[in-house]
Design a protein around this nucleic acid. Structure first.
Lengths: 233, 233
DNA sequence: TTTACTATACTGGTCTGACCATATGTCCTA
DNA sequence: TAGGACATATGGTCAGACCAGTATAGTAAA
C-alpha cells in the first residue's frame, strides 16, 4: 500500500512555496509587480487573509514590498537590515552566545584581511573618525559603544562585499545587544579603555599599510581580548 | 512647532516590535506560551487578521510556533533551517553571486580550522563516508552533488559550533541552487572528477591529523578551484 | 478511589465581506 | 492644452463566522 504524503502545511506556507518556485524559475524578478491581492486570491483559490499572511512573512524577510494604493513588488534592493529578524532569534537563544562570538571572530578576522587589500580612502577615513570618537568620548559608555560599532561597521564595509558586511553587521548587532555590559566594563576602567583604543589603532594602521597579515593578527588579538572580557563578566 | 513622528508602520509590524521588546526584557523566554490570539487582540486592540499577519511572519523566521488547538509558543529550539528564508533573497539577488562565494570561502576556511581541532571520530567517519560516495558515484551528477554536500555539511558539523554550521549550510545551499551546473562540469570530465575527489581526500587527511594549517590551505585550494569552475561557466 | 469516557470550552486555521485611505487613470471642463 | 472632478483599483484593517483539532473538567464505570 502506498500513501501520498498529506499536505498539512498551512496555506500561507504553501503560497510562499509557490512564490519561491516562481522566483526560482525566473518568472519573478527584482522589481516585478505581483498581481493584486484580489486577483491572486482567485488564481490561488485562497482567502485574502491567507494571502496576506504569506505577504507579511515575505515582507518581513525583505523579499517583497507592499505599497498601499500601488501594489506589491519584489524588492529592487535587498535592504541593509535584511538579517535583522535573525537578531530576534539570537535574543531568545541563550546557549548560542559563545557560538555567536566565535562566528563573529571567524567572519571579522577573515574580513579584515579583505579590507586590508580593498579599503578605499573613504573607508579608511571613516575608520579613522570612529577611533577619534573613541578618544574624545573616553568614559562615555554610550558614545564609546557607538564609536566601536562604527569602527567595525566601517571595516565590514571596507571588504567591498555587501553580503559579508551585512552578515557581519547583524551579528555584531546581536552581540552588542547581548553584551551591552561589556562596554561598561571597558570604559569604566581607564587603562582598559586605553588598551581598547590602542587595539583599534593597531588595526587601522595595518589597514592603512595594506598589511593583510598584521590586520588579521591585530583583529584576532582585539576580538580575543574582547571575548575574555565578555565571557568573564 | 513640534510634530510627533506619525506612526506609519503597519500594525503587524508594530505588534512584532512589541513582542521583540518583551523578548528583550526577558518577559518571553524559550518555550513560553503566548496568550491566545483572541486575548491578545483585546489587549493590543487590534484585529485578529493583523495579529495573525504578525504571527505568520514570526513563524516564518522561526521565532514562534503556532500549534492548532494548543496555542502559540516561543520556539524551544531554533530550527536547523532558520536561515532558509535567506536563500530566497539570494535567489533574486543576481549580483550577489561572487559575494556569496567569497562569504562561503571565508566561513568555511576558518571553519575547517576549528574542525581540525574539534572533530569527533563520528564526524571524521561521516566525512570519510561522503568521500567514499564520491568515489563510488563518479560521473553521477546527482549523487556526486549529494556526496559533496554531505562532505561540507559534515565539516561544518565538526566545528561543534551549531551557529556556524547552520550559517554555512544555508549559504552552501544557496550556492548549490545557483550553481547546479558547476557539478555537471566537474563530473562530466574524468580528470576533473579525480581532482575534485583528491582535494576532498586532502582535506580529510588534514582533519584526521589535526593539522589546522594544512586543513586551511587544502580547503582554500579546493574552494578556489571550485570558484574558478563556477565563475568561468 | 481510580480509571475511562464524554461534553464543553478553547485554540489556531481559514474564509467572507465590509470599509478606509491612498494612488492612478479617465474624462470632462475651463 | 491644462486643470480639476470623478471612478476605479490597490493595500490596510476590521468584524464575524465556521472548522478541526486539543485541553480540561465533569461524569460514569470499574
Amino acid at each position: 500500500m502506498k500513501f501520498n504524503p498529506v499536505n498539512d502545511k498551512k496555506i500561507y506556507q504553501q503560497i510562499i512555496e509557490q512564490i519561491k518556485k516562481m522566483i526560482y524559475n525566473g518568472d519573478l524578478k527584482k522589481g516585478a509587480k505581483l498581481p493584486s491581492e484580489r486577483k491572486l486570491t482567485k488564481e490561488l483559490n485562497v482567502s485574502r487573509s491567507s494571502l496576506r499572511e504569506a505577504f507579511s512573512a515575505l515582507e518581513m524577510i525583505g523579499l517583497i514590498e507592499c505599497r498601499p494604493g500601488e501594489g506589491t513588488f519584489i524588492k529592487e534592493k535587498v535592504s541593509d537590515n535584511f538579517l535583522e529578524p535573525l537578531s530576534l532569534l539570537f535574543m531568545v537563544e541563550e546557549d548560542v552566545n559563545e557560538d555567536l562570538i566565535e562566528l563573529r571572530k571567524m567572519l571579522e578576522v577573515s574580513g579584515v584581511k579583505l579590507a586590508a587589500s580593498r579599503a578605499t580612502e573613504e573607508d579608511l577615513q571613516r575608520i579613522k573618525n570612529s577611533i577619534r570618537q573613541m578618544e574624545v568620548n573616553k568614559g562615555d559608555v554610550q558614545k564609546s559603544g557607538i564609536a566601536d560599532r562604527d569602527f567595525h561597521y566601517a571595516v565590514a564595509m571596507a571588504t567591498q562585499n555587501t553580503l559579508v558586511s551585512k552578515f557581519l553587521n547583524s551579528i555584531s548587532e546581536a552581540i552588542d545587544i547581548y553584551f551591552a555590559n561589556a562596554m561598561q566594563r571597558i570604559v569604566n576602567n581607564e587603562s582598559r579603555n586605553e588598551e581598547f583604543i590602542a587595539q583599534h589603532r593597531h588595526i587601522y594602521k595595518a589597514l592603512v599599510n595594506r598589511d593583510q597579515e598584521l590586520a588579521e593578527t591585530t583583529m584576532l588579538e582585539h576580538l580575543t581580548w574582547s571575548k575574555n572580557l565578555i565571557i568573564n563578566s
